[in-house]
Amino acid sequence: MNNTFNLSRFIKLFKRHSIANYKPYLMLLLILIGGLSIALGYTSMNANSFISIEQYTMFQLCLFVSAPIFTAGIFAELGSQSKSISFLMLPASNLEKWLVAWVYSFVIFLVVYIACFYVVDAVVLQIANASLKQPQKLVNIFDPKHRLISDLVIFSLLHALSFFGAVFFRKHQILKIGSLLLVLYFGMIYVNAAVLTAMFNTEVNVGQLFSSVSFIDGNDYYHINESPIISSASSYIFFIVAGLIWSATYYRLKEKEV
């Protein structure tokens, strides 16, 4: 018997997880559609033209908010003692249990999210175009100008952190992970600004993390962009970090005690 991974056992586990969780997942799907409708509807009403960049910004924003919320609950079984025992004692390997949760929260979530976004965006555009002078088209998220790959890397990192938190924290995972992400994000911005100020010996305006920086020196204004090599290297580094956190989640699950 293969004690690490068996495809037939994985499929059985996947089916079992789907049967046991389809109700809360359907509920979350409705919440996602509602959230997207509010976000896209509000943006279309407050914009003079509902252009593709605005649509894409909403795509990014809703993805970065909804993904950690969904992922934080993916190991909901581990939140209660009785559910934990039932989950951990089921005859499947830790890798299979980890993989079912990963596939649901990463792959399936992303596919469902993109599908929901397009459905809601299409409906909102239909309504918005009725009052716009120049009808707008549905955004193509795969257009290179939108840098979808970079956003997917950020999504991977957010997912990995939430995934780890879902196993690490016993209760109130969403709140704890949300707080952790905010502290991490603002902490990094603060440290980044402090380091750059020390480096340039003047007050700097920092854009996104690990990207551009601008500062005034006397009467001169400087804006420095990162080189394309650094830009792509940071994406790889973020993805590697996400991979390490996914692996840490697996080992945390393996060592989980009740």
Binding site: I19, A20, S86, A92, S93
Partner: peptide, 22 residues
């Protein structure tokens, strides 16, 4: 290790139990 070989030969009924909504 909690391997499948170990788990399929052991059934644990805890005091507080959980059964899915099926």
């Amino acid at each position: 290790s909690r391997t499948p070989a170990f788990l399929q030969e052991l059934f644990f009924i805890p005091e507080e139990l959980y059964l899915p909504d099926v």
